[in-house]
Amino acid sequence: MSQGLNMVVCIKQVPDSAQIRVHPVTNTIMRQGVPTIINPYDLHALEAAMALRDRLGGTVTVLTMGPPMAATALRKALGHGADRGILLSDRFFAGADTLATSYALTSAIQKIGESRPVDIVFTGKQTIDGDTAQVGPGIARRMGLNQLTYVSAIPTIDQEAGEITVHRRAEGGVQVLKTKLPCLITMLEATNVLRRGSLPDMLRAERAEVETWNAEAAGVEDIGKCGMKGSPTKVSKVFAPSPRAEKAKMVEGDTAEAKARVAIDALAETDPQLLSVIARQPALAS
């Protein structure tokens, strides 16, 4: 009798970017009071893992690297039905870019795998604050996992044979890929809907002790590869996009018809070829 799949889902707590404002005078980010959320893409990863658990049994461990307050994200995931939450938190991890982040997460996943090998690591497609889509491939490379990015569906999985097939979004179509476990899957958005937590799960989550690991507990071997120190990329400048030198020229006119005519004149004046370009558009042939 197999014990089902041992799965780890990497989630990140991110600022709700819809609510970030730039100070109009100092041009700095106004972070105060910006609420944090679980990176939306990671919720698809969490649901995909739980759906596999429904099929084959097993455990879903959620893992996040961040400040102590990131424990909130783990509790939320536990409330939706994850089995175990691990917070990776240490001042040595601060200021990590994707290379250093994937290093720290890899150490923790290997630690998790010591008691029982991990079959699948899930990440979101990308984060909304970092937006790089690099951490997943980084973990796969470091751990030697088969890398499956932009996955939209997992039609078959055979734990005995250690095989999995997935649909992977590619340019202009979908690749159907077959590979061996263990693997790393980055889930595409809009592939599933996160289930609501059951009442017992929600109650359990509220009281749950989130395990917190520092670098040592996570078995990090080389602290120099973590955080700012282990990050080859450095942010040299953050700034708000500059406004265009001139604002839009406003079209004057008493009626909608008049405004429309004046607007076309203005467009044609700036770009004398515009109307002939329009006349040549292939879509007009029909």
Partner: peptide, 18 residues
């Protein structure tokens, strides 16, 4: 240079030592 924080800001990133 790339957008950051969901596009609200831009940041410039350098790789100086690799």
């Amino acid at each position: 240079t790339r957008p950051t924080f969901g596009g609200s800001l831009l940041c410039t990133i350098m790789t100086q030592q690799a």
